[in-house]
Design a protein around this nucleic acid. Structure first.
Length: 202
DNA sequence: CCCTGATTCGC
DNA sequence: GCGAATCAGG
C-alpha cells in the first residue's frame, strides 16, 4: 500500500476530525497505526498548532472519541448512560438490538464535530426489572473493580456506580460480554426485552 | 491489559 | 519516504 493522494486526503480529514491513528489505519486498510502516525508526522500535522500563539496548554487531551460524520464501519464510541444512582438505573430500554445507539459524545472540540444532544433524553422507566436481576446488580456492585474512566475498555463493564458529582464514582469494570457494554449482570438490567407485560391480545 | 501518540532508525 | 519497534503515558 502506498500513500496515494486519496489516502492522504482521508488521513488528513480523519486526523483533523480527531480520529485516532488506529481508527484511521483501520479505515484505510493495509496500514498500521504506526504507519499512520509516521505519515502524520511527516506531513507535519502532528499537532494542529497554529503557529504564533505560544500558548502553553500542557493539559489538554480530551481524547475525543467522536463519531464519524460519514464513515462508520465500526462504531467505537459508546454512550455512557447515566443512571441517576445505583438505585434503579435503566440506561437503555431497548427493544431490538441496541448494539451501539447514538453517538452522544463528550466532545469538547474546537470545531463542531458532534451536534451534542441530550445525553440521556428518554427514560421511560416503564420497565420492571426482575428482583433477581436487581439483587444480582447489588451483589455485583460489591465486586466492582471500580475502574476510572481511563481504565474502561471495550471489554469492561461500563456501568456507572455512585454519584458522578462526588468522588464516590466509578465504573463496574467487570468483564463484559464480547460486544456488550456491560457485564453479564448489568446487561440483564440494561437491556430488557421491553415487554414486562405481554399484551394479552391484539 | 487496554489504549493513545511520539520517536527512532534500518530499509 | 516509509513503517516496525520502541518508548512514554492515560
Amino acid at each position: 500500500m502506498s500513500w496515494t493522494d486519496e489516502r492522504v486526503e482521508t488521513l488528513k480529514r480523519m486526523w483533523a476530525e480527531g480520529q485516532s491513528a488506529s481508527q484511521i489505519a483501520k479505515e484505510l486498510g493495509g496500514v498500521t497505526r504506526n504507519a499512520v502516525i509516521g505519515k502524520v508526522h511527516r506531513l507535519g500535522l502532528s499537532n494542529r498548532n497554529e503557529d504564533g500563539a505560544a500558548d502553553p496548554a500542557p493539559e489538554a487531551k480530551p481524547e475525543p472519541k467522536a463519531a464519524a460524520p460519514k464513515p462508520a464501519p465500526e462504531p467505537k464510541a459508546e454512550p455512557k448512560p447515566a443512571p441517576a444512582a445505583a438505585a434503579a438505573p435503566q440506561p437503555a430500554p431497548a427493544e431490538p438490538e441496541p448494539a451501539t445507539p447514538a453517538p452522544a459524545a463528550n466532545n469538547f472540540n474546537r470545531r463542531p464535530i458532534v451536534p451534542a444532544g441530550q445525553p440521556l433524553p428518554p427514560q421511560p422507566s416503564a420497565n420492571e426489572i426482575s428482583p433477581e436481576a436487581l439483587a444480582n446488580v447489588r451483589e455485583v456492585e460489591k465486586k466492582a473493580r471500580k475502574l476510572s474512566l481511563m481504565d474502561l475498555t471495550e471489554r469492561t463493564c461500563k456501568w456507572p456506580i455512585g454519584d458522578p458529582a462526588t468522588d464516590k464514582f466509578w465504573f463496574c469494570g467487570l468483564p463484559s460480554a464480547p460486544g456488550k457494554p456491560y457485564c453479564e449482570a448489568h446487561v440483564g438490567v440494561a437491556f430488557q426485552p421491553m415487554s414486562s407485560r405481554r399484551d394479552r391480545r391484539r
